[in-house]
């Protein structure tokens, strides 16, 4: 960004041409969460008990395991976007912005990978 000509002073300060996708994906994953998280908490409330055997055999069933993997993708995407918007509002220092950028682009993916692997181990019967 220059400070000479009038065009030089405004170049790079306009629209990023990519906000709509973020906004729309947040809405789309919100609708997904309404279904998935409602399914999760209703199912957990309906379990006869919360012992290891009961919980594990519930997760191992096809529909719950698919729902949990979708939660690891859909809910983590939604959470990542929401936390990103929150950080964009409150973090203004350059160092903080870099830390926020690293957090938002690494932690949710690592967390979701851990979650998906855990579900797969249970669903596919690994020990």
């Amino acid at each position: 960004m220059g400070n000479g000509t009038s065009i030089g002073r405004v170049r790079g300060l306009g629209s990023s041409h990519q906000g709509t996708h973020h906004w729309l994906t947040a809405r789309l994953t919100a609708v997904g969460n309404l279904v998935l998280i409602t399914f999760l908490i209703v199912s957990l409330a309906l379990l006869p008990d919360h012992s290891f055997a009961t919980a594990r055999s519930w997760v191992a069933r096809p529909v719950p395991s698919v729902a949990l993997i979708l939660i690891m993708v859909n809910t983590f995407t939604h959470a990542r976007m929401g936390v990103q918007v929150m950080l964009e509002d409150y973090v203004h220092e350059e160092g903080g912005k870099i830390a926020a950028w690293l957090l938002v682009n690494i932690v949710p993916f690592a967390a979701a990978a851990f979650g998906i692997l855990s579900v797969l181990r249970i669903a596919l019967g690994g020990a």
């Binding site: 997760v59 983590f76 959470a79 249970i122």
Partner: peptide, 12 residues
């Protein structure tokens, strides 16, 4: 989500 991961990780 932290608790969810602890729960599913412990279960696995």
């Amino acid at each position: 989500l932290g608790l969810l991961l602890w729960w599913i990780g412990a279960l696995a």
